[in-house]
Design a protein around this nucleic acid. Sequence first.
DNA 1: CATGCTTCTGTGAGCGTTCACAGTAGAGAA
DNA 2: TTCTCTACTGTGAACGCTCACAGAAGCATG
Lengths: 343, 343
Amino acid sequence: MTMSNTGGRRKPPTIHDVAREAGVSRGTVSRVLNGGHYVSPTAQEAVNAAIRKTGYVVNRHARSLITGRSDSIGFLLTEPQERFFEDPNFNVLLSGCTQALAAHDIPLLLMLAGTPDERRRITRYITAGHVDGVLLVSSHSGDPVADELREAGVPLVQCGKPMGLGSKVSYVAADDRDGARDMVRHLLSLGRRRIGVVSGPLDTPGGVDRLAGYKEVLTEAGVEIDERLIVSGDYSRASGEAGTERLLAQAPDMDALFVASDLMAQGALTALHRSGRRVPEDVSVGGFDDSSAATEATPALTTVRQPYDRISAEMVRLLLAQIGGEDPAAVILPTELVKREST
Amino acid sequence: MTMSNTGGRRKPPTIHDVAREAGVSRGTVSRVLNGGHYVSPTAQEAVNAAIRKTGYVVNRHARSLITGRSDSIGFLLTEPQERFFEDPNFNVLLSGCTQALAAHDIPLLLMLAGTPDERRRITRYITAGHVDGVLLVSSHSGDPVADELREAGVPLVQCGKPMGLGSKVSYVAADDRDGARDMVRHLLSLGRRRIGVVSGPLDTPGGVDRLAGYKEVLTEAGVEIDERLIVSGDYSRASGEAGTERLLAQAPDMDALFVASDLMAQGALTALHRSGRRVPEDVSVGGFDDSSAATEATPALTTVRQPYDRISAEMVRLLLAQIGGEDPAAVILPTELVKREST
DNA sequence: CATGCTTCTGTGAGCGTTCACAGTAGAGAA
DNA sequence: TTCTCTACTGTGAACGCTCACAGAAGCATG
């Protein structure tokens, strides 16, 4: 009942202790803590020394209570659990965002909203002001949670282009169309002409744009678009495998395959292997993402690199800007073709 | 500069508004909020109605300021980033803990301490009392961060048995020794006698115990222990591949292989494949974890299932108990042999 | 010398809770 | 009646910080 805990934490020093130690007032210490404007060098130094000596760390709750900011942000994932477990991209993004925020001394709250119940709970939590802003990752766009949060005026940055137009939404995305163009051009340069594609979901701009890039380049090269060479998946490994099997049935003469995610490409490799085709000899395979799935695959995947480190950094930058009162903005980052063994 | 944000969040209702609405005092509302003891049914109901009507949500900062609790806990990962990206187990654990905590309305802060700098920053953050407790995941045990936190009196629960003895540390682990025993017995039952092992790191109890289980069963079965059949790795895919190659060189007649993690087992499969051996015909392969890596592997891995859902639930339970003043405790959970194609 | 401006500092108030305490009312016992 | 006990309720004081304000000191300007 009583708080006699093992080790016993003792009461930490307050801003008052620091002020007394430095021989100044609370106000001056507070000013040093927040930027140090209008503080004499003498006081500045005395306060810093006192902070070091007392081991003072600001009490964030007290600060938040008065500022109204929580100085923390949420990382919201509106994907089913399985996708989170399977796809290494989430981890890269999550880790990147955590670190970018750490540089600002802002903790990241992980919010997993796979079920409607969780979505409700988390929406309430966010709109109650317990976080200053939200980094949202969801491959399915037109997310109702996103709309609700935006309507409530919560600063929000999405990863990937969202569906609805609207300049009012902030997002960071890789240049899907351009990346796809690079890949298909590469496949053409290898002499392939019967190029299949397993696209992403066609209700998302990302899925649409990558497919658009594919079609554009073929058209520009004078290669006829064959609908039997086109299927779509949902970025999961299983859908890549299933999609590839459908393609093999519809177009057995396929000599190259552009798969819109590395994870799906892994599934594609499995299907191709089972059909007895050799990669890259019989069929060249290109992925998208350059996730760890690409290097783990056998053979290692040629793929389109999405600059995840820059994506997460930009997401954080945009979110902080938006919290600071700036308008929402979009950032599109360039991709890079990475050639490996599969082509 | 001014806070005219898009959408404009308005000031949320306070406990005062609820009190006025319900015709009671702040104290009564507070009591309803925290358990509802010593509150008349009439008041109880009036307050609940007022809360619903006003949409009141407690201000956690104000509460924390006075209680001294933060009502949030940290999920600390002291692994290098690459391991986090590669190993799906982390996600399962992370997701499980997040959800177990969500049931208590406690947010989880993600803390990645891959570098010494980050470790310092995060240790400071935690010891400053910004979280009430820490869930620690690290495969390398005897973690200096863990010791420092314990010394500071921070409630802490580790995943996996830590190195130093000491009843003072809380942890949750699967029964490594028993799981290994099951697997090796299974391999023996298939008629295999030249059973190799790629163990985990031998400076961790988990690594040691799995190897111990292996040796015990062989000895009990009257099979001689051959040191040429034993190597150790660090749970990464690469180390599984390298270890298997070493085994193949030292003991080419190996007819089964027990690998102490699924990720390493994937690497083992790659090495075996390259050496021209068929799995399971020439060599039976058993993994450990039953992570998504096991089902993704070709052939699908026979493995020892660690009950990650229960592990995360127990970690959270122990941590909350410890925060509540109870003594640290250890929980060992049973494993289960999952037979698939690789044996 | 007064006035204004800039730079710096201290002080009181208040953020929204919970907690301790002081009640009040009603029931039952002496 | 009077006292005690239980069930319930209201109130002031914190918690540790930031913010707005008031003022002091120094210096240049009128």
